[in-house]
Design a protein around this nucleic acid. Structure first.
Lengths: 342, 342
DNA sequence: TCCAGCAGTGCTAACGTTAGCATAAGGTGG
DNA sequence: CCACCTTATGCTAACGTTAGCACTGCTGGA
């Protein structure tokens, strides 16, 4: 690897001169700068950021710590971050936790050792104590899920309101046997969504047993399939389904398609997220749309500013984006005549 | 930030001792090791990889350079790589090029400056000369697209055979007006897929004008919609469509759903890739399935081995994975009676 | 004539870690 | 009692870059 020293020896100048010429220092003559730059290009010099960092410069790497990049929420976020950061000269490091706190810890250890400039994290349900320590030592912000003990900045969507709205829509249509399928209460998002579901039920004056909650692994398509299969076979099958995760929605849609369930006549469905296939599924899937892209952009901008300016610790910041119900054809009053047509 | 020196001073030993204790050097007594490790944990010491790299250690970062992480091919690849590399202690850097060679160049410059251990790249159509130079100086391999002037290892799928097979299926059913929609010929994958399409036509004894090719931006959903809209309106609309990219397929499916085109009676469609919604689209989408996951795993393993062992430059290696046609309901002989049913 | 000031460049130390060599203490055999 | 080995640790240099300070000529004013 070519170093500034190689260039210096080649030109018969000192390393300082080379360093300054490359940094466009005004004290260096234009002629020298020209010769240095030319030599650098010819010799294929590429600066060594590790050495720079030793001299106190910060790295230009920001890490994104998420459960699984295949989830379109997260790939959208990664894309949005990457795009915004590239413009500022930052690179994106990707760490997948698979919702395993030990994997999350291992990643945070590596990221800390690599002295990343900042971290954007969707924390696991209950992060390891060391993870919390490591995060506290870094500029970071939380995304979607909020682990309160971190006490740091958070960007997320209004999960409570989104599920309340979706459930209220079904209650208004007269459903009295509604099942919510979502992630575990341990996850901040899971807890919020469940609360939103429950509060819509009580707002609608429905008794407790009107709503059932099926909680489980939120990122398992297969779990969605199995659960809905079980629900349909059960004695008091629901007339409406509200979903609390993309993967569960995908599983449910696959299963309902295969079993040729009559939606919305026999079952109303409100999905989560808005994937490409949702619009052409059966009668069109009514679903909870979330402004993931806007949220990711906001969070990228926030972090970029935070990294460029000094600490500026003006207390924890919270940005809550509202969701919106996208109405299509998969919901109708219970027992309505089959309305599906060519 | 705590350094080995801080620990050394705290314990009244030398930095060498601390360094060796943390590296589990057999020359250090167990008692000292214990004290050092305890102090390190208490003081929250995190090793500085930048400093290590200065001493010749290689980084533990591998970069993935792709057009767009939102494309499920690439997010699958990223996931597979991340998973395999995490097990070996490597971290994944994500660089999106948006198929822009200048963005690609900027990323490669940054990656080189950061001294990444290796690069896995899906090159743009015509990489910049400097990009080629930078790549040559790094352990790297190409994925999906093969830029031959790099002369390096390549992992990909048999695009030619995949399209040949898909097109042959339509030819066998008697179609004589088939349109292929895909990426530009500049892209290695685009050229291969087009060749596959053409060779199926000539194998089937069809005249040149039987097949039409609509080439354009492969990652634009909107372009897919527009193109199919135009084709359907045209004077000699095709009776069958073969697609050469996921995004185009998504656009086409959306448009055909909205326009209520009768598939396969009025139009047969063979998609590209196998997204969740493809199975429940209309009569079920017949599509070209590609073993992306297996390919990504193979390429992760190859790079891991390459990084752990010495150069081992036993010539360029090529791994070609076959695709397979997934038959569903979206293809039928032209003009067949509508067979779609509840 | 001499010194101040300036432009342009060189020297050196420092960042945190590691590896080679040196050192110190304690034990063993001759 | 000394040479020698072993065990445990210390000292120092080096990695590539940058910043502070020092230096060398040269110009211009006193």
């Amino acid at each position: 690897m070519i170093t500034t020293r190689d260039i210096a020896e080649h030109l018969g100048v000192s390393v300082s001169t080379v360093g300054r010429a490359l940094a466009d220092d005004p004290r260096i003559s234009e002629e020298t700068k020209f010769r240095v730059r030319q030599a650098a290009t010819e010799m294929g010099y590429v600066g060594n950021r590790a050495a720079r960092m030793m001299r106190g410069a910060s790295s230009n790497v920001v890490a994104l710590v998420i459960p699984d990049i295949r989830n379109s929420f997260y790939s959208t976020i990664a894309h949005e971050l990457s795009k915004n950061m590239e413009a500022e000269g930052y690179q994106l490091m990707l760490s997948e936790t698979d919702d395993d706190r030990m994997v999350e810890l291992r990643h945070l250890r590596e990221l800390s050792a690599n002295r990343v400039a900042g971290v954007i994290i969707v924390p696991t349900a209950r992060p390891h104590g060391e993870s919390v320590k490591l995060l506290r030592a870094l500029p970071h912000l939380q995304l979607l899920r909020r682990h309160t003990s971190l006490g740091s900045q958070w960007f997320g969507v209004d999960d409570h309101e989104a599920l309340r709205q979706a459930t209220a829509h079904l209650v208004t249509q007269g459903h009295t046997r509604i099942t919510y399928m979502g992630g575990p209460e341990e996850l901040p998002t899971g807890a919020e969504r469940l609360r939103g579901f429950r509060s819509a039920l009580s707002d609608g004056g429905l008794p407790d047993h009107a709503g059932r909650a099926e909680l489980g692994p939120p990122s398992s398509v297969e779990h969605g399939r199995e659960t809905v299969r079980r629900l349909l076979k059960g004695p008091d099958a629901p007339t409406a389904l509200v979903l609390g995760s993309i993967q569960l929605t995908l599983g449910v849609l696959e299963e309902l398609s295969e079993q040729d369930v009559n939606v919305p006549a026999d079952l109303s469905v409100v999905g989560f997220g808005d994937e490409p296939g949702f619009s052409w599924w059966g009668p069109g899937l009514t679903t909870i749309g979330l402004p993931i892209q806007e949220m990711a952009t906001g969070c990228a901008l926030w972090l970029m500013r935070r990294l460029k300016t000094k600490p500026s610790n003006d207390g924890p910041y919270t940005s809550l984006s509202p969701g919106s119900l996208i109405l299509r054809g998969s919901t109708a009053p219970p027992g309505a005549a089959a309305s599906a047509s060519g």
